[in-house]
Design a protein around this nucleic acid. Structure first.
Lengths: 243, 243
DNA sequence: TTCTTGCAAAATGTATACAACCGGTGTTCA
DNA sequence: TGAACACCGGTTGTATACATTTTGCAAGAA
């Protein structure tokens, strides 16, 4: 065991199992055999069990009453509620930030990100810098989370650890689809409005905007599930969703 | 290892460590030595580490960058935000229940609990059945949580696993204080209003009521911290709060 | 056929051994 | 005198052995 391996087997286990689940290599509902997984990942059962316990807390696997874990099955309602929950929590973060005030330096960061996001949307839908928008969008949301206290940030991060509840869930490179691209213009308008609401100390408005902003993800979800199911494969996290 | 001990050492470890922390036997900020704890609880390090990892997820202990865990220090703001978060999440549960509708049987359960809660408040402040109210109150809130989907219920349960964020945090037997007793009449009125709002499908009202209801806990907290610090000892969870 | 019963293989939960690492202390050298 | 360094106790992270339980399956009886 080398120096750089310290506390790293657990990390490998966590990422490895998560990847196996999200990629769909292990079907939803199937039991996770510790020995098989440990062998597959080339680690022992101890760090693997730690990873499984953590994934249980994250909600990606269920604990079986008689022992062990199984890949959780997500219904459409589960996904919708996870997205709703993200909206509620981000909304709370923004409301409290607006009510309590934010240091100017942080507002400056947000403004800079807004400007950068705008530049990626300059051109037409076809030529816009989609990849760069995705990165900046993730950074923007993380800055928003940073406005909240540790207690609230923890919950946001837990909820968004579900792959389909993250702000980037439908914005991966694989999911570069015209319908999703078009939604970015409205999303960016909401970004600006959210920052403005915080600056104006309009807590309720900030909260409402964050909730509505998360609804974009729900729209994208419903577009995939109801109108163009061929896209399911493009959004990896959705392999977990049944019917 | 006997039959009934299966998967029970982990439970004992979890409850044991949590108790040591909440009771204040281990000071906030101090490091948790695995070997010492394991010996103290009479178990091996393996289930103990599982318990510590879980407490880390719950937010009761922090992970130390160089390895291991320490009892988390909670500021007053941490506690306030945890209570606020409970209000937000319970509010979301109620709003969604109101918007989506609730099966009559469940509403019946809630009404029965309301009636029982009322009976405990019949007499004067001095003779009311405080202990019974506490139990019924906990049951009532759990029923409310049951109205939400699994995804949301999970988060509620995680947040309320912090001892001072639970609906019963300031209603333990030890915390039987006139100021807290008096707040129960208003609380019960809010209970009735919340159920009514759900029945009337008034989602926004239900959400607001749940948030305001959680504020009672904040009032009690501030009463303890600002007006009668001698009560800190009566509310065990507050031994974790610094300054 | 279908349900019950017994058994064996596999899986989990726990204990323990081992290796790497962190922090502090004493020593040594400039 | 002070700083660098080597070492050592104590601690965590990992691997593995072991005991008990779960479970799938086959055989037998109703």
């Amino acid at each position: 065991m080398e120096k750089s391996d310290r506390a790293q087997q657990s990390q490998r286990a966590l990422m490895g199992v998560r990847d196996l689940i999200v990629s769909g290599e292990i079907r939803a509902g199937s039991r996770l055999s510790e020995v098989a997984l440990a062998e597959k990942l080339g680690i022992s059962r101890t760090p693997l069990r730690a990873a499984l316990a953590r994934l249980g807390q994250e909600g990606l696997v269920d604990t079986i009453p008689s022992g062990g874990y199984a890949v959780r099955r997500f219904t459409r309602e589960d996904v919708i509620d996870a997205i709703e929950l993200r909206g509620v929590l981000e909304g709370t973060a923004l409301r409290l930030a607006a009510e309590r005030g934010v240091a100017p330096a942080r507002m400056g960061d947000l403004h800079r990100l807004l400007v950068e996001l705008d530049t990626t949307l300059r051109g037409t839908v076809e030529v816009m810098d989609f990849d760069r928008y995705v990165d900046l969008n993730a950074a923007f949301h993380e800055r928003l989370w940073g406005l909240a206290s540790q207690t609230i940030r923890r919950e946001i991060e837990r909820v968004t650890s579900l792959p389909f509840a993250s702000p980037s869930a439908f914005l991966d490179k694989q999911a570069d689809v015209p319908a999703f691209r078009r939604s970015l213009y409205g999303a960016q308008a909401q970004h600006r409005a959210m920052v403005n609401a915080i600056e104006m100390r309009e807590g309720a408005r900030a909260e409402s905007l964050a909730r509505e902003h998360a609804r974009l993800a729900r729209q994208n979800l419903e577009h995939v599930l109801d109108e163009d199911r061929s896209l399911i494969r493009r959004v990896p996290a959705l392999s977990l969703v049944m019917g």
